[in-house]
C-alpha cells in the first residue's frame, strides 16, 4: 500500500451505517473524497465482522461521480466482505456514472449491483411484507 493511501486512511467515516437484522445499510451523498471512501470501506468491513452481518447495502443513487480510486475502494470492500462471508450490493447507480465507469474501463468486477435500494434489499432476502400495502410505483 502506498504512503498516500496510508495517509488517506487516517480519517474516520462520518457516514451513518444502519443495521437491519443481518444487513448493514448505508447511503452516500453527492461525492466521496478519497479518505472518506477508504474510511467507509474500513468501517463497513469492521462492522461486518463485529455484527456478523450477512449483507451490505450501499445506496449510491445520490452519488454523481465515481472515479477509479473510489471504484477500487468499492471492489476492495466487496472482496473483503466476501472473505468475511457477506455480500455487498451497490444500488441505484446513476446512468452517467455507469457510462463513465464503463468508458474508464472499470466494470466493478465482483461487485453486485441493484437498480435501487428496494431491489437490493430484496436480493439480500428482505421482502416487503404482503400484509403491508405496497408503495405505489411512480
Amino acid at each position: 500500500m502506498s504512503p498516500y493511501r496510508e495517509g488517506a486512511r487516517a480519517r474516520v467515516s462520518t457516514v451513518p451505517i444502519l443495521r437491519l437484522g443481518d444487513v448493514l445499510v448505508t447511503g452516500l451523498l453527492g461525492e466521496l473524497d478519497d479518505s472518506s471512501a477508504l474510511a467507509l470501506a474500513e468501517e463497513l468491513t469492521a462492522r461486518i465482522a463485529q455484527d456478523g452481518a450477512r449483507g451490505v447495502l450501499l445506496d449510491i443513487s445520490r452519488v454523481d461521480i465515481i472515479d477509479s480510486f473510489v471504484a477500487r475502494a468499492l471492489m476492495e470492500l466487496s472482496t473483503m466482505a466476501q472473505l468475511l462471508g457477506a455480500r455487498v450490493i451497490v444500488a441505484g447507480m446513476r446512468p452517467p456514472v455507469a457510462i463513465t465507469l464503463v468508458e474508464l474501463g472499470i466494470e466493478l468486477t465482483g461487485v453486485e449491483t441493484a437498480l435501487n435500494a428496494e431491489e437490493g434489499m430484496a436480493s439480500l432476502g428482505w421482502r416487503q411484507s404482503d400484509a403491508l400495502p405496497a408503495e405505489p410505483r411512480a
Partner: peptide, 12 residues
Amino acid sequence: MQTVKAVRLMGA
C-alpha cells in the same frame, strides 16, 4: 459489450 456492462452496473 460496453452497453451490456453499463446496464449491469445499473443493476439490470
